[in-house]
């Protein structure tokens, strides 16, 4: 069985690559959507809200198929776009919630100090918003890592697929699946632990969300 472990390891690398691509893509797009939804004009705001609603309501697999069959992309790229947009929609809603929990007066104060709207968002709102949304982000990180397994459906050879390939040779499904489960647990748990350290590091005492 040892000789098959490099295969699993290759799968782990693909899974991690996929997971990080989704997550970063979703983080950037999620921020843009959230800011657009809160500070954009009526049209932009409505568009962002609609985007978030649609991509949160659709099954990941349906989005995946639409990209994959609709645009003839490579499986990896289709997976990144599809699952990246899905997590972007979810992340945008955490960010939006965090922005809306920041006192409105701060924006007014920044504007009255002569900052442009964009500058106020970048310098005043975002540093607080990102801190406030960290707990949700770490939850979403675990979800994105787990969702990488769906890329299996369009033929990306990630850890689950590598596992299935090994099983067809060795006929020991339970052993392989348990190893895979443990690997997933390590990736998700390890990541959320690191993010919790980040949360502690960036906490500003007295500025936590009050319950």
């Amino acid at each position: 069985m040892i000789e098959y472990l490099p295969g699993l390891f290759r799968g782990v690398i693909v899974t991690i690559k996929l997971g990080f691509s989704f997550f970063i893509f979703g983080f950037v797009v999620g921020n843009i959507i959230a800011i657009g939804q809160v500070y954009g004009n009526k049209f932009i705001s409505l568009f962002c809200a609609g985007f978030a609603w649609v991509f949160r309501s659709l099954p990941a697999l349906v989005i995946l198929y639409l990209w994959y069959f609709g645009f003839n992309l490579s499986p990896f790229l289709a997976a990144v776009l599809a699952l990246g947009l899905r997590t972007a929609a979810y992340q945008s809603q955490f960010f939006r919630g965090a922005i809306q929990s920041i006192a409105r007066g701060q924006m007014t104060a920044a504007r009255s100090l002569g900052m442009s709207k964009l500058r106020a968002v970048v310098k005043i709102i975002m540093p607080q918003m990102l801190r406030l949304s960290l707990p949700y982000i770490s939850n979403e990180y675990a979800i994105t890592i787990k969702d990488t397994s769906l890329a299996f459906a369009i033929g990306v050879v990630e850890i689950l697929k590598e596992g299935r390939l090994i099983i067809t040779v060795l006929h020991n499904p339970m052993d392989i699946f348990m190893i895979i489960a443990v690997i997933y647990l390590i990736i998700t748990r390890g990541g959320t632990y690191l993010l919790s350290l980040l949360e502690k590091h960036y906490r500003i005492p007295g500025f936590e969300i009050s319950n």
Binding site: T148, S149, P173, I180, A181, Y184
Partner: peptide
């Protein structure tokens, strides 16, 4: 901590 798809495979194939 593990993907739903992996759990489904464990139940169906494992």
């Amino acid at each position: 901590g593990t993907p739903l798809l992996a759990q489904l495979f464990i139940i169906y194939y494992g």
